[in-house]
Amino acid sequence: MICGIPLGGYIRNRRLSLDGAEIKSSNAKIINIAFKYGYETPESFPGAFSRFHNILPMMARHDGEIKTFARITIKSILEGMDRLQLRFFESI
């Protein structure tokens, strides 16, 4: 939510980005790549892939442009602790 996209959407887009990169860089069967990235049926993968990349998986392998969806890293920094709080955390 902080990044403006629901968690499920982030996971789906990130997965489609990774499988697109693997299709471009390897000679593995496209169906095996689809299973690797969590698609349970062969029919569901081409539709999801083409909606995200605007190209079919086989076309992407040969000469198509694929989209990338960057990895999001979230860091949390805790500031403003006084000595009493610090000692509490050190004892845990």
Results as ranks from 00 to 15, higher is better:
79 E>P: 04
35 F>P: 00
76 S>K: 13
55 I>G: 01
62 H>K: 15
41 T>V: 06
88 F>E: 13
33 I>R: 02
21 A>F: 04
28 A>I: 10
76 S>Q: 11
47 G>F: 06
2 I>P: 03
85 Q>Y: 08
36 K>H: 11
71 R>H: 12
56 L>A: 08
70 A>K: 05
31 I>E: 07
15 R>C: 07
48 A>E: 00
81 M>Q: 13
7 L>S: 13
62 H>F: 14
5 I>C: 02
17 S>G: 13
53 H>K: 07
70 A>E: 08
88 F>Q: 14
37 Y>C: 02
78 L>S: 09
17 S>E: 05
55 I>N: 02
64 G>A: 10
72 I>A: 14
34 A>I: 00
44 S>I: 07
27 N>R: 15
86 L>I: 15
87 R>P: 04
79 E>H: 10
9 G>Q: 14
4 G>F: 01
5 I>H: 01
57 P>H: 03
5 I>E: 01
30 I>G: 01
17 S>D: 10
29 K>C: 10
9 G>W: 05
58 M>F: 07
67 K>V: 08
89 F>E: 09
16 L>M: 04
16 L>D: 01
20 G>V: 01
61 R>A: 04
71 R>M: 06
57 P>V: 05
6 P>D: 08
22 E>P: 02
79 E>D: 11
76 S>V: 15
12 R>G: 02
17 S>Q: 06
62 H>W: 10
47 G>R: 04
33 I>Y: 03
60 A>N: 05
1 M>L: 08
4 G>P: 03
29 K>H: 13
48 A>K: 01
72 I>W: 05
32 N>C: 11
43 E>D: 09
32 N>A: 12
80 G>W: 04
87 R>D: 15
15 R>I: 10
25 S>Q: 11
49 F>K: 00
48 A>C: 05
51 R>F: 05
80 G>K: 11
61 R>L: 05
68 T>W: 05
76 S>G: 11
26 S>N: 13
48 A>Y: 02
70 A>R: 08
28 A>C: 13
86 L>Y: 11
27 N>I: 12
75 K>M: 09
7 L>W: 12
34 A>S: 04
52 F>R: 01
19 D>W: 02
38 G>E: 04
10 Y>H: 03
49 F>Q: 03
84 L>I: 14
26 S>M: 09
24 K>V: 05
10 Y>I: 03
81 M>S: 12
68 T>Y: 09
88 F>W: 13
41 T>S: 11
9 G>S: 14
79 E>F: 11
2 I>G: 10
16 L>G: 00
63 D>P: 01
75 K>E: 12
62 H>T: 15
30 I>N: 00
7 L>D: 13
38 G>C: 10
64 G>W: 03
82 D>E: 12
57 P>D: 02
88 F>Y: 15
60 A>H: 01
91 S>D: 15
46 P>E: 04
44 S>D: 13
25 S>N: 15
14 R>G: 08
44 S>K: 09
73 T>P: 02
41 T>W: 06
41 T>E: 09
65 E>H: 07
66 I>R: 01
67 K>Q: 14
42 P>W: 07
55 I>T: 03
